[in-house]
Design a binder for these strands. Structure first.
Length: 108
DNA sequence: GTGCTGACACAGG
DNA sequence: ACCTGTGCCAGCA
């Protein structure tokens, strides 16, 4: 257990992260905006602390780039969930296709 | 209260 | 596509 106990804000962030359906993703800023509290940095902080207990790969940069240091793991999940990826000319996955993979949050 | 840091976002080169 | 500078909010010493 790396966690004493998540704050209320942290619980909301983790809750939203768990609600993101497979094949979809949300950016840090999106989650903050969706919750209407904190900011991308705060969401990032929560993920850094307790993201290990949720689908952390579904939370990425607004640009769609992977989480540094976990590109390989994230990629494995994306391919398993069928997340729309955007590839470079080399054929290597450079990130997620935010245009199709972004999850508006149950409705949008 | 002040200063530094961080799983970010945006604009410019 | 990559690096730099600035803005933002919260946590810690």
């Amino acid at each position: 257990m790396v966690t004493p106990h998540p704050s209320d804000f942290a619980e909301r962030v983790l809750d939203v992260t768990e609600r993101i359906p497979p094949g979809r993703v949300m950016s840090y800023g999106d989650i903050a905006e969706y919750l209407g509290e904190g900011g991308p940095r705060q969401v990032g902080r929560v993920m850094a602390l307790w993201g290990g207990g949720v689908a952390w790969w579904r939370v990425i940069h607004n640009d769609g780039s992977f989480l540094a240091g976990h590109e390989r793991q994230a990629l494995a999940h994306y391919r398993a969930e069928g997340t729309p990826l955007r590839r470079s000319r080399d054929g290597a996955a450079s990130g997620v296709d935010m245009r199709r993979a972004r999850w508006p949050g149950s409705g949008g």
